[in-house]
Design a protein around this nucleic acid. Sequence first.
DNA 1: TCAAGGTGCTAATACGAATTATCACGCCGA
DNA 2: TCGGCGTGATAATTCGTATTAGCACCTTGA
Lengths: 343, 343
Amino acid sequence: MTGSRRRVTQQDIARMTGVSQATVSLVLNGRDDGSVRIAPETRDRVLHAIRSTGYVADPVARRLAARHNRILGVFTYEPVFPAGTGDFYHPFLVGIEESAERLGCDLLLLTSAPVAEGRRRIFHDDNRLRLADGCVLLGRSLDRDELGRLVAEGHPFVSVGRRDDAGGPVPYVGADYAAATADVVRRALDAGHTRLAYLGQGAGPESHTDRFAGYRASLDAAGLPARHEPTDRSPADLLDALLDAGVTAVLAEEYADGVALATVAAERGLTVPADLSILALGDPTRPTTSDLEFTGFRIPRRDMGWQAVEVLTGLLAGVPGTVTQRLLPCQPVDGVTLRPPRH
Amino acid sequence: MTGSRRRVTQQDIARMTGVSQATVSLVLNGRDDGSVRIAPETRDRVLHAIRSTGYVADPVARRLAARHNRILGVFTYEPVFPAGTGDFYHPFLVGIEESAERLGCDLLLLTSAPVAEGRRRIFHDDNRLRLADGCVLLGRSLDRDELGRLVAEGHPFVSVGRRDDAGGPVPYVGADYAAATADVVRRALDAGHTRLAYLGQGAGPESHTDRFAGYRASLDAAGLPARHEPTDRSPADLLDALLDAGVTAVLAEEYADGVALATVAAERGLTVPADLSILALGDPTRPTTSDLEFTGFRIPRRDMGWQAVEVLTGLLAGVPGTVTQRLLPCQPVDGVTLRPPRH
DNA sequence: TCAAGGTGCTAATACGAATTATCACGCCGA
DNA sequence: TCGGCGTGATAATTCGTATTAGCACCTTGA
């Protein structure tokens, strides 16, 4: 069997070059400052041996001794390479990867976390959180108990997406859904709509409550009713209810719900946006197909991932001025699904 | 910065209960078999202390002692989170992740590999291959020299996709392109075609040679000529050549080439498949759009990733019966682009 | 009374790298 | 000739856990 070969260690390098393990370590870490000196000739010999053997420090031992290893964990509550969520998480990972690469860190996907009660759990018998220096958390909603424990035990981590306090402030890089949604409302009002509806949960994960808060606040300020439609019925029934109530513009928390609504509208012979404006509060989280480009906003996913790593490494380095809670603006999208209402 | 107060260790528990650290370890691991005995009374005392302090074993130290880290590297010759290759690599990663999860392994993305001479290299000054226990290799074509070195140095790895020997057998989980292509040829023959053409390189990476071998063998067996069209000319010129030669069915090594051919055919007023049958030998590796569902086969990408991890962990564990070279069947696709030829 | 055998636990060590205190050596000046 | 100093490297220890050899003590049987 191939795998039988022992891993190359600093001890091996030391024997090969006739120096001690300590010297190898010193060379590896470029310790050439005042307190430690290595003869250039020796250094080259060691470096050469390292290169020829392909030696790499064992991250585990390194972490045990030095308490850090320049590895960042990525923990996701949904699978990292999602089958069901289309590519929604993809841009986050692109940003995370780019940022990690720039900072010279490796990424460890904590895929070993077992699933219990339908979701992954961070804490379990053999959790490997501590294998990495710190951890980026990704997912629509994070378990509050686990978050609380992370905070309480002082694990360095950053959430992608805003999170409420969990026994303490939670470091995050989120999207400013409240402001983005308020902006969408404003655009609808500017177009002349007065009867809007919010389609979605509006509760649960912070990303939902933030959107709904932005929606409600804007309409309250305008003195208009903030109608809220749950998603527990069929698109057809929903459409009936909306038309009965005279709603002219719908804000879809979930892109896919907006698409479904547009589809049944088309089946009824209605035109979007001539007969009904539909606005999407973000990018699709599930794969959907539609010829319509929805008006709404785009989540700065890549940048969120990018900055999350930045915040995390800042935390780890103990950089004083690092802002550990950041909300990034969303980018408005001028689609084709908003038009002034009929009279 | 991190957890302020020191973590509780086995040593602490030992001092609290007046036993040795070794005893704590033994109790923790439930070692009560023949070779080791712990008095029930002592065990309870230790367990009680463990519970009251909330002690959890440090995974890092645990790994160090265990001599392996249950981390699997994933090395890709194309970028892991691809922008250009569409979603082609995505299903592989889904399978890899699922399998790793099931086996309790974490994944380390070796994305820091630098690009030299237009392609990523495994071996370089600062390669981190040995960070992981073993490695999954992904990519259309792997550098033969590097593959040879992996084999020679005894690195535990598995290739996704069949590879020729490189100074020794290469462990792989591949798709049986030869059989799948032969099957496509058979379907074309059954439909009455006698003048086929293979569109593509037919050489280079194993995935190409395997397809071409299956194509050629089938036609040889049927006593028919095995026409081969390179891809170095424009789709328009290609179409001319095919029509001149009386070809009625084209097998496209690359899905995108099939799409391009169908497009120019349509521009000429020809209909696929009425005037020309086009068969795709696999899934699109580049993003393409076409209303046609091509007849051909699907690569079992997810399963390939899944089994690759399985083979790798088998290798690492030294499981004797593990088959380290596997070819998985492709799934036939009955599309709309095959029809009996005109006469 | 003493060897034989069983019981319960500990001392010692390994794992691989990082770090600190220390040491051997050569050279120079007095 | 000896003390002092700069230089280059090493021995020893640390991190927290797992494992094994072996020790001290007790019981039993002849």
